[in-house]
Nucleic acid binder design. Structure first.
Lengths: 219, 219
DNA sequence: TAGATTGTTAATCGATTAACAATC
DNA sequence: TAGATTGTTAATCGATTAACAATC
């Protein structure tokens, strides 16, 4: 596998390609063109070709790509075949949803424990995953050699939890709190925000409300 | 309110600023500089200034911005003060999490009903919101003049649901399915993907595994 | 073969960062 | 005042789209 830099937008599109390919396979389709994939997903065909090229997959002129090959290329490129363990901190509404999110399993990631500060949740299970006291996080992570930490707590609590994760030897943090996490350079942090997406929607709606009878404007 | 085009990344950062400002206000802080905000959130200070300028907020040299003013500017810019109703289709794991997500209420959006194809869920409530048969979606949307439709179903089911929403007069769709939704030009579609973020993390981890003892690489 | 499709190189577009003048 | 901070203009960087040669 090459470690060549890949545009972040490319990485973000790969799961959409992957899920489309799964659907095509299910329908029995063997070959697919970049144009077809782009059409279904709303991505320019040139863009699709570039993205797929990054994964190392090769197509054949006039024929397209083998669905099976593309699935394998994406899996390998994202290292989804590698079994990886994770813990999640913050068993609230979003956290619980992630515990049941099949996209995590698809990426080869298994959440082996959840942690929460609320004693009422300790010992209970969410989607079959036990909830433990947050004090046990560091020890648990170290002993079980956990690779990924998922943070779904309010922003103020996120930095100390990240620190405990790092102490516990965690290699990567999937952060849902809107705050910068200060970690050593070899620890990966990927921050996600549902609110970000909602803000884009809010703004588009605000503009639409301003322009009642005309066409929608950009921005 | 201006309808000038605004960079999408700017819109996506606004909620993070907003939540930080809420925390600062709670701590009793009255003024804040772009540098401070950028420091906490990991955003370049020039970027913060540009983003805030889009909302129409003005700061004072040597003093900074009033926390209260920034909160008001962002609320107005995103039209969060406007009461808006929404429905959600797909009361699974992610859908249920969204029903309990406080960020939606903060944006002035109230989810008034959820819809699901599973009869076992009909008449039940999730986070206090009733789950109804999917057949009632269009009529409900029209009668209640619902503005936003949230789609949290598998990709194959998303297009017909989007069509029903459009028929029901919905103005904007928040789409969590990895598929393009074909809607009239005056209907807003904003597509979000949790898997996208996980793919970025997967790739970084894959590269880290390839370079065991050296520094992390890009891409 | 002809033509569809791939894959790559060049051009355009958009966002971020740097530089700097304005100002409290 | 001096210096910190704002806000804007210019330069850089990165991603997308267009053009086109290669090829099955």
């Amino acid at each position: 596998m090459s470690t060549e830099p890949v545009p972040k937008p490319t990485l973000r599109r790969l799961p959409a390609y992957y899920q489309l390919l799964l659907r095509l396979r299910e329908r029995g389709q063997v070959m697919v063109s970049a144009a077809q994939m782009g059409e279904v997903l709303g991505v320019h065909h040139t863009q699709v070709r570039k993205d797929l090229a990054f994964t190392g997959s090769q197509g054949r002129p006039k024929v397209g790509h083998r669905v099976e090959d593309l699935l394998a290329s994406i899996e390998q490129f994202l290292d989804w075949r590698q079994a990886t363990t994770a813990v999640l901190v913050g068993a609230g509404s979003l956290g619980t949803a992630l515990l049941g999110y099949e996209g995590i399993a698809r990426a080869g990631v298994t959440i082996v424990a959840a942690f929460d500060s609320d004693p009422a949740k300790h010992g209970r299970k969410r989607h079959g995953i036990p909830v433990r006291p947050i004090e046990d996080l560091e020890t648990f992570a170290r002993e079980r050699e956990v690779a990924i930490g998922i943070i779904t707590v309010p922003a103020v609590y996120a930095p100390p939890i990240a620190a405990a994760m790092v102490k516990g030897g965690i290699r990567a943090i999937w952060n849902f709190a809107p705050i910068r996490l200060d970690v050593p350079g070899d620890v990966i942090v990927e921050t996600t925000s549902l609110a970000a997406s909602l803000a884009v929607l809010s703004r588009k709606l605000a503009i639409q409300r301003q322009l009642p009878a005309s066409e929608p404007a950009a921005g």
